[in-house]
């Protein structure tokens, strides 16, 4: 009796709720922490970036108009789905990062808990960031936060799951949609996360995940005129500067890398507020 040959998974991209290969037909070999071959990941191209932005833009009106309660429920659902696939993520994270099963388990648990934490923010951030303004006149005047729009995210190279979840959740919980460039070094958990997202009632296009070269893709994303904001957390100093310069063309909101990689710390509200606008509405009071 020979040992059964396993059926491997083809890792593709995640765009508009579907799993296409890169239009370029390119792929690259992904290796584990010990240098062993894990899989061939898709190497996304400029065209894939643009397709992903189109999908994110298309998803924005629906997602941003969803009730905060609904968005919170969906983020919680993502946490549920992630928990259900715990074993699979533990083994992927262990392979990618070369950490023990125990450590990988902690990282997966932390990712689940982070999603639950952000899920609860959906219907609270408005109370924190909004205000009723006592103007000197007979006017009703109210400020409320609104999502910025389509946000590009350069995910951290380290923390292929926990880091990834920690940058996606704060962007989408407030109603933004996003295009994420996954960790180039360890992209496989990001595509498995896409499988979780695809089965969590999250509308297609709210999160789009691309694997490949960050240095190649990030500038296309940063310079794209239909992207409203960019999170450069995963970019090195040189790439971050180049992307920030490109982002100036349409005055994108830029979240600069701050050198911190400790994802276990209290994340605060900064990752959410970086991609929120404040809208102030006036109306006269009278009879």
């Amino acid at each position: 009796m020979s040992e059964r040959l396993s059926v491997r998974k083809t890792y593709k991209l995640y765009i508009g709720g579907a799993f296409p290969r890169s239009e370029s037909g390119r792929s690259y070999a992904v290796t584990g922490a010990k240098g062993e071959f894990l899989a061939n990941a898709s190497k996304a191209s400029r065209k894939d970036v643009r397709d992903a932005v189109t999908a994110a833009r298309k998803a924005f009106p629906g997602w941003s108009a969803a009730t905060a309660y609904n968005r919170g429920q969906i983020l919680y659902r993502i946490a549920e789905m992630l928990e259900g696939r715990r074993a699979q993520f533990v083994s992927e994270v262990a392979e990618a990062d070369g950490v023990s099963g125990k450590k990988a388990g902690e990282l997966v648990d932390a990712a689940v808990d982070r999603l639950v934490w952000y899920a609860g923010w959906s219907d609270k951030i408005s109370s924190l960031r909004g205000s009723s303004n006592p103007v000197a006149g007979p006017y009703f005047n109210l400020s409320t936060p609104e999502p910025t729009g389509v946000v590009g995210i350069v995910a951290p190279p380290m923390g292929p799951l926990f880091g990834l979840v920690s940058v996606i959740a704060p962007v989408i919980v407030t109603g933004n949609t996003c295009v994420v460039i996954a960790s180039e070094r360890a992209p496989l958990p990001s595509i498995t996360l896409a499988e979780v997202l695809a089965t969590s009632d999250l509308p297609g296009g709210v999160v789009n995940i691309l694997t490949g070269s960050a240095a190649e893709m990030a500038p296309w994303l940063a310079g794209h005129m239909d992207v409203n904001g960019i999170d450069l957390t995963g970019a090195d100093a040189e790439l971050a500067q180049r992307c920030e310069e490109l982002a100036a063309e349409n005055l994108k909101r830029v979240l600069r890398p701050n050198g911190k990689t400790d994802w276990t710390a209290d994340p605060g509200t900064g990752r959410m507020t970086a991609f929120l606008e404040t809208k102030t509405v006036w109306h006269p009071i009278g009879i």
């Binding site: 000197a136 006149g137 006017y139 005047n141 809208k279 102030t280 006036w282």
Partner: peptide, 23 residues
Amino acid sequence: AGVVWSNTFNKFDPTSPFGGYKE
């Protein structure tokens, strides 16, 4: 848009946040 004036326009007040979306 960052400021929406309904049934009024060009009103300003120090207590009222002002600023834009997009470009």
